[in-house]
């Protein structure tokens, strides 16, 4: 897996597909003969994916009367941005800020402390580190939802209920196991000679970590940051349970309440759906390869 991750990351870094180009060419000749059923299925699935997306986008540009009067799949006769305006007026900027704060406030600490732990697990030795590593591996199997009740009670006890910090703390904890697994696999692939030469130059382990391991692990760090970031950005259960003030809503929660309040104005509801996805869509357009590599976060094979 670490090799996959590495080649993914490498592709992402250089923006080429040199690694798999040869393999793909071989597959290409093979697959070309599958063209008819394969192509048919491919286009069919495209319709399944695109129709809902198309519907959401065009409806969000319709006026109320356009929504009620036109064919639902026809392009809006008088396209309008007023739905977007009313969404923005309904505090979406605030939700957006909250989501950004929670996402950054979770991902940055997660990656930082997981990187340190991974470095220790790979470079260090001893029973304690083995135990820690084993515990993180076990943690991969804990579903977050199952611990929501004790987390809720603890957050109340800590006087953190209804705060953005309440969303960050459990998010960090639950992202640690996978992040450590991926980063430690990556650090393990750094050639030992490099560590040796750092040591001979008189660098401490602390210096080696920041000056050698960190730059060499950067692609993997970007990958896990994206993976974790998307999960936090789109998370719904923690905000639902741990916050209540309208001013502390994150985007998915804001979408849900907005939908409840504006259920008569479907175009506006769908405009809110589009708006909440926009930042990630922008990310997808500018860094698609990296984003997709981040999404599988080394799950492939």
């Amino acid at each position: 897996m670490s090799t996959v991750l590495k080649s993914n990351a490498q592709e992402a870094r250089t923006g080429t597909v040199t690694g798999s180009a040869a393999a793909k060419r071989g597959l290409g000749t093979r697959l070309r003969r599958l063209n008819i059923p394969g192509g048919l299925g491919g286009w069919l699935w495209l319709a399944v994916i695109i129709l809902p997306v198309y519907y959401v986008v065009i409806t969000s540009l319709k006026t109320q009367s356009g929504y009620f009067g036109q064919n639902p799949l026809a392009l809006p006769t008088e396209p309008t941005l007023e739905n977007y305006q009313s969404v923005l007026e309904a505090d979406f900027a605030q939700y957006f800020m909250n989501s950004a704060i929670v996402t950054l406030g979770s991902v940055i600490p997660t990656v930082l402390i997981s990187f340190m732990a991974s470095f220790a697990i790979v470079r260090g030795a001893g029973r304690f580190l083995k135990l820690v590593n084993g515990m993180f591996l076990m943690g991969l199997a804990i579903p977050l939802q199952a611990t929501i009740i004790p987390i809720y009670l603890m957050i109340i006890r800590l006087n953190l209920y209804d705060s953005l910090l309440a969303l960050m703390l459990p998010s960090i904890a639950f992202a640690i196991p996978l992040t450590v697994l991926i980063l430690s696999n990556f650090i393990r692939d750094v050639p030992n000679e490099l560590f040796e030469s750092m040591r001979l130059d008189g660098c401490s382990e602390w210096q080696t970590m920041w000056r050698l391991a960190l730059p060499l692990t950067r692609p993997a760090i970007v990958t896990v940051a994206i993976y974790n970031g998307l999960h936090v950005w789109n998370g719904f259960l923690l905000p639902l349970v741990l916050t209540q003030s309208p001013s502390l809503r994150v985007l998915p929660l804001g979408l849900w309440t907005f939908q409840g309040e504006f259920s008569v104005n479907i175009p506006a509801v769908l405009a809110s759906v589009v708006l909440s996805t926009l930042p990630i869509l922008v990310l997808y357009v500018i860094g698609r390869r990296q984003l997709l590599a981040g999404l599988t976060a080394g799950f492939s094979k």
Binding site: M116, A120, V132, T147
Partner: peptide
């Protein structure tokens, strides 16, 4: 040196124990 590295796991361990292991036992 290798044993001393164990300290680097403390922050991650802290978060994981408090917000994952304890809730799991708590449930």
């Amino acid at each position: 040196r290798k044993a001393a590295l164990a300290w680097l796991t403390v922050p991650a361990l802290f978060f994981f124990l408090v917000f994952a292991v304890i809730p799991l036992a708590g449930v």
